[in-house]
Write a protein that binds this DNA or RNA. Structure first.
Lengths: 300, 300
DNA sequence: CGGGGGTCACAGGCTCTGACTGTAACCGCC
DNA sequence: GGCGGTTACAGTCAGAGCCTGTGACCCCCG
């Protein structure tokens, strides 16, 4: 037989009271049962732990040595159980987060800082990724949650954290660059630079919709992936584009951001509903709370 | 229910193989029983540890956190059992040793050093005490073993470690101080200094015997307790006395040690038979081995 | 497309163990 | 000598843990 935690608990109880009778009463079992279990433990260890006779019970030398050992095992076991419970509450463990590259800039620092402060024992692993990788990672479990822009896909859940204005991005010196606000239709005759359609279909379907509502189809003179590339092309005078206002922190020379009337861009937290664990919920709470407290599009 | 070590062992087995079927086979129980126990553990912890379906078993995030915890508990338990076994072999624990003051001088350093080297995890507590305290301590368990001189009492076991010559101790310049050897009868007319009879009856009964065999009763002019006191009185010319040869290391001026023909003094290790534990046996082995290897009466 | 081999879960029955009660032996104190 | 205290021994019982039998499902291969 190999000792179980019960035997150690019984042993410690007897050792602390130096009486089978008293210990059994406190353990709420019969003295005979306690004696029996201690004998079983002694046999398993191959040694006597107590000297006992009709006038009482004393620890043997081996028992004296074993007492702190048994206490240590029990304490370690309690700690293990407690850790499991904390893990269940999402207070320890590991969380893989994806940030869309164009949102990583302003979202990642404050969110990560706030979460680390609230849940110091959660090991946060973050990555700035493209939209396709982000969605794929949420679906196959590589990421537990992500911060990105809608629209995504039906099988992912999202909660909107912040909204911000959408701007026309024009080269400095453009005839419309001095306006305080524009409508999308004002840019109907301009040459456009946009991201490749293949980068993320749902986005481009929404773009198509927007342009159709504005009554024109943009003349796309070049496609380039990534906000910095687009800004570079605009600054070079190749064409105009349209971006969320927070992108202006990435390039401040050669381009002008003019708000577009009635258009807003959202940043959302997304996750796979089948993997909605406590830690994800905790992250959502932190992110929502943060969005309510500060302007995340200006942060970072 | 509170988890037992069995549950942790089962959990680790499943987590390592990611298969109930394989783990059960290695644990030599049925897969169904293993499933049952894992479910019980999960209920006790209030959380799922595995995601399982028809195509296999994977750890949940909580399970991943709990796995090293469970391993740690099991390792701690193994260590505790191993410590108990080592304690049973007398390799860890505490040993209280008494040294008769007059033997502490030469016995204690080599014995303690040799034992510490062989059993570094045994906590050795040593004390130099008088003979009455030594015997009392062995009887009531204050000391596990002692190094002393016979005769003692019947209820203590002893093993002789070393024997040495007994000497007449004379003041420098005494008419017999130049002799290479004496017989006790040669000192029949001398004034004697001896220890008080009350110090230890069995010794004095042996002294009486010796003197009777030599054909005289000594004329005791003063009694003093402790070897240094006796040597001081001899050096002062108050009288002569009789001591084991090893005592000469305590005082080399004013006194002369002359061997007595045919008389030997022994040093023994003593213990109470009811408290003969493995550690005591180990100490005995070390002491006997040491006595065979070096001259303990000259050591220290 | 169907069958075989793999997964885990559920249901019912057997065994053994950890618990209980009752009893005995022993010690120390009044 | 009786009483209150200790632990140990013997016999009994309920339930925990394990077993077998079965079912549902998935994947791969022929």
């Amino acid at each position: 037989m190999t000792p179980e935690l019960r035997h150690l608990r019984y042993f410690v109880a007897v050792a602390e009271r130096l009486s089978f009778t008293v210990a059994a009463r406190e353990l709420r079992i019969a003295q005979q049962s306690l004696s029996q279990q201690i004998v079983a433990l002694e046999r398993a260890l191959g040694t006597r732990l107590f000297d006992r006779d009709t006038r009482g019970t004393r620890l043997t030398e081996v028992g004296r040595v074993f007492l702190p050992e048994a206490r240590a095992v029990l304490a370690r076991a309690d700690a293990a159980v407690e850790t499991a419970r904390r893990a269940e509450r999402g207070e320890v463990g590991r969380l893989h987060l994806a940030f869309l590259v164009s949102t990583a800039n302003y979202m990642m620092p404050p969110v990560v800082r706030a979460f680390r402060e609230r849940y110091p024992d959660v090991d946060l692993v973050t990555e700035a990724v493209g939209i396709a990788d982000l969605v794929g990672g949420l679906r196959d479990g590589r990421y537990d949650a992500a911060f990105t822009r809608p629209p995504l896909v039906d099988d992912l859940k999202t909660v909107t954290l912040v909204g911000e204005r959408v701007c026309a991005v024009l080269p400095t010196g453009h005839p419309l660059a001095g306006r305080a606000e524009l409508r999308l239709a004002d840019l109907a005759g301009e040459p456009w630079v946009l991201t490749p359609r293949g980068s993320w279909e749902p986005w481009h379907r929404k773009y198509d919709e927007d342009f159709r509502a504005a009554g024109f189809a943009p003349r796309v003179v070049q496609r380039a992936d990534g906000v910095p590339s687009l800004l570079g092309l605009v600054a070079a005078g190749v064409g105009v584009t349209r971006l969320a206002r927070s992108a202006h922190s990435l390039r401040r020379t050669g381009v002008v951001f003019v708000p577009l009337a009635g258009e807003r861009a959202e940043t959302v937290m997304a996750w796979h509903p089948g993997r909605y664990r406590r830690a994800v919920r905790n992250l959502l709470d932190v992110a929502v709370g943060l969005a309510a407290a500060i302007d995340l599009t200006e942060a970072g």
